[in-house]
């Protein structure tokens, strides 16, 4: 019973130590810069198509459904733009991207490090005298912190773009009406909050996946467990962090 209660606390402690050791080796990144660059491509650039696809559909659907709900002569059409653009910048653009990346990036990192752990490749790195946490964990977490805001920008641009396009093609509102509405209620705080969320989600997804992968046990089954847990935990923590950031900054 006590062990079951202490187990999550132990996990939090272990996670904190891992992250502490990763950031303590930040001065070694000049040795591992090539690895950081590779991870930035894998985590960021390679994720652009799927993030753009999700953003495109969510922008289009949001425009259509907002137009449907506000279909009354008493509300100006520009309001659709006023709702769609901030919704994407504040919430949809970053949360949908976060969920997709929890599956794509989180699962990949956990599976990669988990396989390296069970096949003793991490031990081999350590036995050579290499700092395996600095070499494997730090570049992935830094790449997440650098590239998730970039993906957030992609998500917003594509989401709002397809919102404008769908509104125009579907005959709900013109491009100028959409842009006028979007500008009318625009606050710099909206993209700032989205940016903070993207940084937070980037850290959550990569760090949780690194933690799960790095401490994988029990062969192929362990790799499967780590991969699933990395994706599921990341999604749960994204939801919690989304609320926390909103409560703190709004």
């Amino acid at each position: 019973m006590i062990d079951a209660l202490l187990s999550p606390l132990r996990a939090v402690g272990k996670y904190a130590i891992l992250m502490g050791r990763a950031f303590a080796s930040v001065d070694e990144i000049r040795i591992y810069w090539k690895n950081l660059f590779i991870q930035m491509v894998r985590i960021g650039i390679d994720s652009v198509p799927i993030v753009a696809l999700a953003a495109a559909f969510s922008g289009a659907v949001l425009t259509v459904q907002t137009a449907y709900q506000l279909e009354t002569p008493f509300i100006p059409k520009t309001i659709i733009g006023s709702i769609v653009a901030p919704s994407i910048m504040l919430e949809l653009g970053v949360v949908i991207a976060g969920f997709i990346l929890a599956g794509r990036v989180g699962a990949r990192i956990a599976a990669e490090l988990g396989t390296m752990r069970v096949s003793e490749q991490i031990d081999a790195l350590e036995a050579m005298g290499l700092n395996s946490i600095g070499f494997l964990v730090l570049p992935r977490v830094l790449a997440g912190l650098i590239m998730f805001p970039v993906l957030y920008v992609v998500s917003c641009v594509v989401g709002i773009g397809t919102g404008i396009f769908t509104g125009h093609i579907g005959g709900f509102l013109s491009v100028s009406e959409f842009l006028k509405g979007a500008r009318q209620f625009f606050q710099l705080l909206d993209p700032f909050i989205g940016f903070v969320k993207s940084l937070t989600f980037g850290f959550i997804i990569t760090s949780v996946a690194c933690y799960k992968g790095y401490y994988t046990q029990s062969g192929a089954e362990g790799v499967g467990d780590s991969t699933t847990q990395a994706a599921v935990l990341s999604c749960v923590f994204i939801l919690v962090a989304d609320l926390m950031v909103a409560l703190l900054l709004l």
Binding site: T115, E120, Q121, D123, A127, M128, N131
Partner: peptide, 23 residues
């Protein structure tokens, strides 16, 4: 300390059971 352990490890070559080659 960890840095010294890393330095000492450079005196070793280890052949792991499965090879532990980087795939």
């Amino acid at each position: 300390p960890y840095e010294q352990v890393r330095h000492l490890r450079m005196r070793f070559g280890v052949l792991f059971q499965g090879g532990a080659l980087f795939d």
